[in-house]
Structure formats: C-alpha cells, structure tokens
Design a protein around this nucleic acid. Sequence first.
DNA 1: CATATAAAGGATAAAAATGTCTTTTAATCT
DNA 2: AGATTAAAAGACATTTTTATCCTTTATATG
Lengths: 143, 143
Amino acid sequence: MISNSSKYAVKAVLYLALNSSESHKILAKDISSPTNIPKAYLAKVLQELSRHNIVSSVKGPGGGFYLSEDNKKIPIMKIIHVIDGDNRLTSCMLSLQECDEENPCPMHDLVGNTKVNFVKNLEQNTVEDLVEDIREGKSFLPL
Amino acid sequence: MISNSSKYAVKAVLYLALNSSESHKILAKDISSPTNIPKAYLAKVLQELSRHNIVSSVKGPGGGFYLSEDNKKIPIMKIIHVIDGDNRLTSCMLSLQECDEENPCPMHDLVGNTKVNFVKNLEQNTVEDLVEDIREGKSFLPL
DNA sequence: CATATAAAGGATAAAAATGTCTTTTAATCT
DNA sequence: AGATTAAAAGACATTTTTATCCTTTATATG
C-alpha cells in the first residue's frame, strides 16, 4: 500500500501533532520509543520531512522536532509523496503508461471510483483533521 | 500499491486469458515479449502461480501455460495474495496490530469505506470479468 | 569563548525485492 | 529407447529498501 518509511513518517508526524508544540519540542529518540520506530532510521525520515517543511526542527539545546501551525495544515498525501514519490498510490495499478481516464486498463476500470475517492481523502485531509478525529474519539492511535 | 511482481502476475494472467486456451498453450518466453516482463523473472512468477493453481501448465513439446475454465473464475485478489501475501492491501494502512473496525486508527478512519470497496472489488471480480470488460471495450490492455 | 546539546549529513551494512542463469524433471514424438 | 521440448527448481547477481553508525553543523548556555 505505502512503504514502511511512509508509515513511519505518518506515525511520527501524528505523534508530533499530538504531543509537541513550538514551546515543547521533542527529540528524535523520544519519538522512537513510543512509536517503535528504529531511532536512527526515524532520524533520517524526520530529516527528510524537515527538508520539505512538513515538520519543523531546531538544533541544539532545547531543540528538537515539532509541528508549526502551518505544518498541521499539510495533507496526509504530501507526507506520503515526500517519502514514496508521487506515483505510488495515484498511478495506474498496473503501472501502464498508456492508461488514463479515457483509456482505462482493466484494473483501473475495476477499481474505478473507489480508488479515486481513496486518494482524494488522503489529499484533502490534513494532519489537523486526523488529530481532531483522535481527540473526538472517532479514531485511535495505538502506537 | 501492489508489488511489481504482482503487476507482472496480473498482466500475465490477463494475457493468458485473452490469448490462450487448453488447446493453445503459450510459452513463458512468448508472454515475456508482448508484456515487457523479463523472461526469467516471469517464468518464476508463472511457476508460483501454477503451484497455486491460478494458471495451468504442461511440460514438454506442445506444452506451455494456459488458463482452464476454473482458472478464469479466480478473483484478481487471489493473484495478488499469492504473490504479495495476504496483508499488503487489506491490513491497516499503518500496519498497526491493534487497529480494526471497532478501534480504527486515524488513517483507517480517514480512508473509510473507499478502501473497503476497493478491496471488495478486487475480491469479487474474476479474471473472466476483466476479460469481458476488455472484450466489450469498457477497458483496454495496452501491454 | 568553551562546552554541551541536538539535528543534518555522509558512509556503510543488512535485508528484501527483483532479475538472471544453469540444471533437473516431465512430456512428446520419432 | 533416444532426442527434443518446455516447465520446475535451484543457485546466484543486482537493485532497492530499510537500518545503523559516525562526523559535521547549528544553537543555546554558563
């Protein structure tokens, strides 16, 4: 579905969304333990997210990672795009160049609107939206 | 979304569905060219599919691969399951053990019914169904 | 300024996925 | 039976993904 790295990325971002703020930054190693993501690898993923302004970071004492208000408005799909590239979820299921809405391949056709909606949801929903769902008890994040 | 190997598998099965029969078997190498799948690797994939009775095969002169009537009734999802394992598409997007319908994770909740329908389509539609769509011009298979 | 802190970056390592090649087994045909 | 055909199986090579470790850079504080 999505890569392991993207799962790590989404988990880490949600963890930050729930537990950090500009005045309460969190160290990579302190995200690693509760989320069960290998420390050094998570650091790499966070680095990549930081480079693309999906998470915010500050070096040195009192530093760490956190989400700015802007970061919280980022759609989940963007996290996945940064880590997995653009086509993993959105391209035709058989990776056929010639396949599009006009000339759909059999899988494209089969999957139809369900996949379109699926992707649309990921594009429209932001980190903030997911946090709200968690806060309202609509969903849970068992890390 | 699904692995390269699964894409190869689905392509090869569809190719067989469209071009082979018990009285007209096709060699692995003759599927390789039109589908642009590496010959030796395709052979491996077909071997695996054959072992799981998703395609039929006969050794020796006049032999090759083909789809029996039973093979054509196999749901697309089964092809994917044999190659990718059971959980790639169906498990929770974050691979959380504790996530289910009762206690959905935020992604689970987000994706909601769209993913369920997506998977359901793959489970319900058979090779035969896709072939029919192609024959009726509802979809195209540009290999 | 010196020191400690913590992310950024670079170099490797390990594992999994993808791909290739060679040998073996089963079937057909003369 | 012997020769030929084609899948099955096994061994190996390459690439990508995942993971670790070490060094460098930026920041804060005494």
